[in-house]
Design a protein around this nucleic acid. Structure first.
Length: 341
DNA sequence: ATACACGCCTGCTGGC
DNA sequence: TGCCAGCAGGCGTGTA
């Protein structure tokens, strides 16, 4: 479930279950789910087992769970001498990083469900809370399911954010622990990703300046995670419709006002999708309980080819752009006059 | 630096 | 009915 609203639905569902939880066991069922991890499955399992998860944080489509410092890194490194190089990372904060790719899901359960067909990684975690009797909550299964294996998990070291601000959105935990050590650190493999438009530290002027240096079509800029993160094909098309812009309008020729309006539309669309629990076309895109979101019912153009534009009634068209499909209203979003090339 | 092609995978749909 | 091309919410790398 891949764009910002869908990943945020997962993050929000994960947050209460994993914050303060301890990883009891790690089962790597398919190594292809570790393409972002620098090392084999045993290394991933070894570095994660026994660790305590601090929170669930998201920037754009990337999700990560900062880990409390390992209690005894020395013992750990001597035990697995073949990965002793990780001893040099002792003291550096680490996080469990997840990217859902095209078809990834993270599901929580009590182990009472039949195993999903494309289950790739299984974590057994012990939640932090104790109930009124003081007895421990039962362990929870966290499964990473991914049909197409474009998504993956990794243990990654964290580096300080370049602007010193919080690395991403962490929900309630953020309010309770605004100065937590993990707050201003970001997994190194996520550090090249721009902030997302819902991030309070997102710099509108910087986005506008970057966009106006690009000769390419505005949709390409929206999809560039180094310029603005969290937007994928669905929300790019929806936002461009909202701002009445054709996807191939050269970004460098848009006015600042055009780009401010576009940014406002991006935020409105993402916000509405969030309210609806994200966009689900099938059982592939679900929250941590396996439930679908309802934003697909409110899509104006994505997948709506042949149906009337909600604004003017003209049939929506679908066209190829950047080797994928784009949807637009031919009247509200006319092709730029000088078709480039 | 930027722009593009391509690879990574599985499963479903539509046309023949 | 079968087969095959085409398509699907993404990212990283390599090449000009």
């Amino acid at each position: 479930m891949p764009e910002l609203p869908e990943v945020e639905v997962v993050r929000a569902g994960l947050e209460p279950a994993v914050s303060g939880a301890r990883v009891l066991a790690v089962h790597v069922l398919d190594e292809r789910a570790l393409t972002r991890h620098d090392g084999p499955g045993e290394d991933f399992a070894h570095r994660l087992t026994g660790r305590t998860i601090a929170a669930a944080v998201r920037r754009g489509k990337f999700l990560w769970m900062p880990l409390e410092p390992a209690p005894n890194p020395e013992a750990a490194s001597t035990e697995h001498t073949e990965h002793a190089e990780h001893a040099e990372h002792a003291g550096h904060p680490e996080a469990l990083v997840a990217h859902l790719g095209m078809s990834g899901q993270i599901l929580l359960g009590r182990g009472d469900r039949p195993a999903a067909k494309h289950r790739r990684i299984l974590l057994e975690v012990q939640p932090a809370g104790t109930d009124r009797d003081g007895t421990q909550e039962p362990p929870v299964e966290l499964e990473f399911v991914d049909q197409r294996t474009f998504g993956s998990m990794a243990i990654d070291t964290m580096v300080p954010t370049i602007d010193g601000a919080a690395a991403g959105f962490a929900g309630h935990v953020d309010d309770e622990h605004p100065d937590a050590s993990w707050r201003r650190s970001i997994p190194s493999q996520v550090s090249h990703i721009a902030r997302d438009p819902l991030d309070p530290a997102f710099d509108d002027d910087r986005f506008i300046a970057m966009a106006r240096k690009r000769a390419s079509g505005i949709k390409r800029v929206l999809l560039d995670q180094g310029v603005v993160s969290g937007i994928g094909n669905i929300y790019a098309d929806e936002s461009l419709w909202g701002a009445k812009l054709h996807y191939d309008r050269p970004a460098e020729r848009l006015t600042r006002a055009d780009l401010r309006l576009l940014l406002a539309e991006v935020r409105a669309v993402l916000g509405r999708a969030l309210e609806d629990g994200g966009t689900s076309f099938d059982a592939q895109y679900v929250n941590i309980n396996g439930q679908s979101g309802y934003f697909s019912q409110r899509l104006a153009v994505y997948g709506q080819q042949g149906k009337p534009c909600p604004r003017c009634g003209t049939p929506i068209v679908r066209e190829a752009f950047m080797n994928r499909s784009s949807h637009r209203c031919p009247v509200c979003q006319p092709r730029p006059r000088a078709t480039r090339r």
